[in-house]
Design a binder for these strands. Structure first.
Lengths: 199, 199
DNA sequence: CGGCGTTTTGAGAGAGCTCAACATCGGTGG
DNA sequence: CCACCGATGTTGAGCTCTCTCAAAACGCCG
């Protein structure tokens, strides 16, 4: 989604890599911002924790995506970044990125477009979490994440992770998927869900 | 929140105003994007409607705020804009705004910062909608919207509108507020809520 | 005064959460 | 090779909480 095509070679060269093991925290809410991170490979999720200890998954970034873009304009991070799988990330220093955006209009334009896309994606997430019914929430997820064949939805990680992304308990997701499968609405295989009825 | 301090006078002068009555739709999801809107006065909310007809309020813009910024980078609007109160909006043509962002680095910078702020606000909304308990959701809202005195939260519109913004039914909100008041957690007056216990 | 929208309160039902038990599978170490 | 362990996947039962449907008080405005 957020291919960092706008990062020029000069900035790219200044990036420093770091390896993360699954479960490791990259940065915490409130910590000083270091710069812009790009996920080289693996999955890193952005999340917040509420008083009750519940984790709200805000986004999961995969290979090539950048995270913490908004933090370029903030002195501290406003959410937690946690490796969902083993992962490698690359850090681009804040000052360097900001200077590039300041002096390179086309980079700035691409960056703005990327922020705009993120805003749209986030609004879709809000729409999704506004749906109470687990079944309709799953349907919404399927509709939004349909592959180009308009019939299948790839499953990137575990169902448990998906449940967290959907804001459901994993039990509720399991049950809902089982029900949708037995009613003939979907078919499931190892790495994808096939949608049989129009959504 | 989104004071359009980055809109230069030249663009400002090219704006065209339009009056809206409460309930009127400014633009619909899927419609061609005309440009950037600024709410001169009144309240305009961005929302989406799901299959069940439920409205998910994504944002409510007040005096001075801009809406549809992300749509500058999209051919169509991705949500509905509806006047919550009688309102006046000003439209800045897309091409003019884009040209300004292209040639004026400081305007581009301010615009990027505004988009970044919006991303953070949207993430806070997702965090909020991830909270199931009506009481905790209200507490979260109060904590996020505390005035500078750290004790009061202003009530801009009706409680019914607030309920929609919180993603709760109005009945649930009324009940929750009544309960929080009777337990001594808050005090209510016409235009604000006073928080008595630390959140 | 009548009408309309907001604010309240009541009662019932449905749905997801919580707690719990168990199956499955891959990896580890004896 | 097998036992063990942890994480994921699955299913069951009960409970809580919000939603839904209803009804009524209240305030505002023509």
């Amino acid at each position: 989604m957020s291919e960092p095509d706008w990062i020029p070679a000069s900035v790219r060269a200044a990036g420093t890599e770091r390896a993360l093991v699954a479960g490791e925290t990259l940065f915490r809410q409130g910590a000083q911002t270091a710069g812009l991170y790009q996920v080289v490979h693996g999955k890193v999720r952005l999340a917040r924790f509420d008083r009750a200890g519940r984790e709200a998954v805000l986004h999961t970034a995969s290979d090539g995506e950048t995270i913490a873009e908004a933090s370029l304009f903030s002195p501290t991070y406003h959410c937690e970044a946690i490796a969902t799988t083993d992962a490698t990330v690359r850090l681009y220093p804040k000052a360097l990125v900001m200077a590039e955006l300041q002096h390179n209009p086309s980079a700035a334009n691409a960056f703005m477009a990327m922020l705009a896309r993120q805003i749209m994606t986030l609004r879709t997430s809000i729409e999704q979490r506004n749906i109470r019914s687990a079944c309709d929430r799953v349907r919404h997820y399927l509709a939004v994440n349909l592959a180009e064949d308009r019939r299948t939805v790839p499953l990137a990680g575990s169902l448990k992770d998906l449940a967290a992304s959907l804001g459901l308990t994993h039990e509720a997701l399991y049950r809902t998927l089982a029900q949708m499968q037995s009613s003939g609405e979907i078919e499931r295989s190892e790495r994808e869900i096939r949608v049989l009825k129009a959504i």
